[in-house]
């Protein structure tokens, strides 16, 4: 039963519960799933699932992005292609895909392609270790982790990675959110798959 509970549906519900039930306004939550990649037992963290909520202030949607017109066109093109591949419909039939793709939306989408060797990157450092909480643009920009620096470039002000039984929960926000034990405890309850039931 514990393995059947560990599927993408319940992951999505847990991520949603975590973000929607939080007092702070988190922009997204990602579950990085651990898997063993070779005989030496080395593991890697890859995309498990993610929940994107977006910025609290919808007005920020239009102003947050600072990238060039060419970059915005590239993002829209990628989104259009993905949309037509997923829905099977013509991209032009869906006006939503032609809306500006914000920095945090793009950061979230690009995250789906990423993975981290155990011990490297923000999620990789948190795995089998302690939570990592980075608040403030300066701290993110000065981090030794590329993902943290990347997050800052895409408008994040807070990034958190909390280890769980078989992966890492990452949260990001465009707001300044300071460390609190409530969130860490919630992650431990919601994502401790070994103790299901």
């Amino acid at each position: 039963p514990s393995t059947s509970l560990f599927n993408q549906e319940t992951l999505q519900q847990r991520l949603q519960t975590l973000i929607e039930g939080a007092r702070e306004s988190w922009t997204y939550a990602i579950y990085w799933q651990s898997s063993v990649v070779d005989f030496s037992g080395a593991s890697t963290l890859g995309w498990g699932d993610g929940y994107y909520k977006g910025e609290e202030d919808k007005g920020k949607r239009k102003t947050a992005s600072s990238q060039s017109a060419a970059e915005q066109e590239h993002r829209k093109k990628v989104l259009r292609e993905l949309n037509s591949l997923i829905s099977g419909s013509s991209a032009s039939a869906d006006d939503a895909v032609d809306e500006e793709v914000t920095d945090t939306e793009w950061f979230f989408l690009v995250s789906m392609t990423q993975s981290f060797v155990n011990g490297s990157g923000l999620p990789g450092q948190a795995f089998n270790s302690v939570p990592i909480w980075v608040t403030g643009k300066e701290r993110l920009a000065g981090s030794s982790c590329e993902r943290a620096r990347q997050g800052q470039v895409f408008g994040l002000q807070t990034m958190v990675c909390i280890p769980s039984a078989s992966g890492v929960v990452e949260l990001g926000s465009t707001e300044l959110i300071f460390q609190n034990s409530d969130l860490v405890n919630k992650v431990r309850v919601l994502f401790n798959f070994n103790n299901m039931g």
Binding site: R61, V97, E105
Partner: peptide, 30 residues
């Protein structure tokens, strides 16, 4: 194309559906 397998199909599908919902909720007058 070959890029799609990199993305988790369900995650992407959810993201696109929710994005559409969010954009629909944003008032055209704001």
């Amino acid at each position: 194309n070959g890029d799609l397998p990199i993305f988790r199909r369900k995650s992407l599908q959810r993201f696109l559906v929710k994005r559409k919902e969010r954009l629909t909720l944003v008032s055209p007058y704001s």
